[in-house]
Amino acid sequence: MEYIIEAFQIEKSFSGQKALNGISLKVPKGEIFGLLGPNGAGKTTFIRCLNRILLPESGQIKIDNSEASDETRLSIGYLPEERGLYKKMKVGDHLIYLARLKGLPKIEAENQTSYWLNKFDIGKWQNKTIEELSKGMAQKIQFIATVIHKPDLLILDEPFSGFDPVNAELIKQEILEQQKNGVSIILSTHNMSSVEELCTHIALLNKGEIVLEGEINDIKTQYAKKEFEIIFEGNMISLTGALWTGFEIVTHEKLKNGRLKVSVRATGQNDLNDLIKAILPSCKIWSVTQKTPSMHQIFIDHVKDVEEEENDVENKNDINE
């Protein structure tokens, strides 16, 4: 697999506090990669290191197989979470200026500006100043400024924040189109539904460390709690008997059509096949589904788990002291 970003043992601290504590991460080329984590986890610091806004104290960052440098950052399009524009500058001039700072020749910058403004249907605003634009329009300009120089890598920090649903959808489609064109994308967000919808890979940061990383489907399978939902016709007592070894019933209810719905949790190593084998002789199965946790749930559970573990360690230390 080819990687757009390969980071090894990145460390960065502020006033003695470790913001990034030996982060190693690989972002596959051409994918949408979700960078998740609670506030203060180190996401923005990591992104700033990729952009060379900050320089790591130790570790190595490779962007598209080249050592990160002032040159490599020209191939990055960066949309920060806190973003703004020069209020008094004209829309067209502003986009051309930012594109040229990213290394685009003047004519190319002008052409791209016209192309994108027309694509987003705001061509007639080219000669208006930024302060004359609505908030939504200004956000579109910010997005255009991120992609105008045709970067190989897009780093989008909370790209949907502040957008109305129509514009959020527009940006979402645009992100997908960029990916289709071969652009790699890092999406840093708290919006878990967009992560599930867009990302193929994720990394979860907490307190400057990566606590979870991988393909989203693998993670979901890994964190599936082996809970199943069975809808059947038959007798509850005989089902309970069939599940006696290897499973436990969590909830059960009678549906309006007379069928029964039961939530079951596997104990031990039993899986879906074992479950079907066990209940098949005792009832008529209508459906069996394995419950998969949402990214939202995995995020919350994982961050909570890490905090609990830390609290335990702290408590133990307190006792030892």
């Binding site: 806004i53 960066y78 920060p80 703004g84 020069y86």
Partner: peptide, 11 residues
């Protein structure tokens, strides 16, 4: 304060 600076210093 307009937060344009982060975009600028990424270039």
């Amino acid at each position: 304060n307009s937060r344009i600076v982060e975009v600028l210093i990424s270039s």
